[in-house]
Amino acid sequence: MKALITKRLRNHTYPRWLQWLARIFWSVQGWKLHGKRPTIPKYLLVVAPHTTNQDFFYYLWLSVGYNIHPYFIAKKDIFNGLLGPIMRSLGGIAIDRAASADVVDQAAEEFRNAEEMVIAILPEGTRKKRPYWKSGFYYIALEGQVPMVMVSMNFKEKWIKLSEPYHLTGDQQRDLDVIRRFYSDAHGIKPENFSDIVFQERTGQNSGGQT
């Protein structure tokens, strides 16, 4: 089986001037950033809402401002053409949705074996509204034995917040209640596309969530 991650990004840092530029960008646009950059060595970054292609680039710019350089899991389509090398250099991992169950297992194993690593996931898995979130991110964190750091954006009130690291209990409903509370005031660019925070029954095919 091909390894999910072949290049370590843990020693990467953005130049200070670029971090300041990102902070200035948010300030000039009238955004407020709440929460501190996690200091723990490995965690799963859970990012929502994802209602248009545009918000992906907001999240990318956010990672610069906080000096977080995660891997991110995305459907292979966005790695086509000239965009592919750029996305990979930023930590993109192209996956085939048909092999999503393998992705969950491999990502969890990567976490267990790594001393330092961050993976970012958009758990809605699509820009269109769906009646559930993809549950793969939950099992990656649970089986990988790492906490989640949740990221929420409100494009109406212009704020972004990062949660404290949250260690899943394994009680899915209890954990989902925590997740719902955190995202209860999120507001996407197209709020009507924000998917409901519930899970389908887990089957042999899972996805950690893609763009």
Rank of each mutant, 00 (worst) to 15 (best):
G35E: 07
P165S: 04
P70R: 13
R8N: 15
P15F: 02
M150K: 06
Q54D: 09
V151W: 01
Q145T: 10
L21H: 10
F79D: 09
G65H: 02
G30S: 11
F182N: 15
V118N: 03
V198S: 13
P165M: 04
D185F: 02
L21F: 13
V103E: 02
A141Q: 07
G84A: 09
G170V: 07
N206I: 04
E109A: 14
A94W: 05
S27W: 15
A101V: 00
E192P: 06
Y183A: 08
F56L: 10
L142I: 01
R174V: 00
S207E: 04
G81W: 01
L122V: 12
E201G: 04
N53Q: 13
D96K: 06
G92L: 12
F72E: 12
P191C: 07
I86D: 11
N206F: 03
L45R: 09
R97C: 12
F137C: 09
Y132R: 06
L90N: 08
P131C: 13
D171Y: 03
F111V: 08
G209S: 08
E109L: 15
A99F: 12
G65R: 03
G144H: 08
I119A: 10
R202D: 04
H12F: 15
F25H: 14
Y138T: 03
L90K: 09
H12R: 15
I86E: 08
L33G: 03
R180K: 14
M153W: 01
R202C: 04
L45M: 14
W133G: 09
W26I: 14
R112E: 10
N206Q: 14
D196M: 08
V28S: 11
G125W: 07
G204R: 14
A186W: 05
N154R: 01
D102Y: 05
P41T: 08
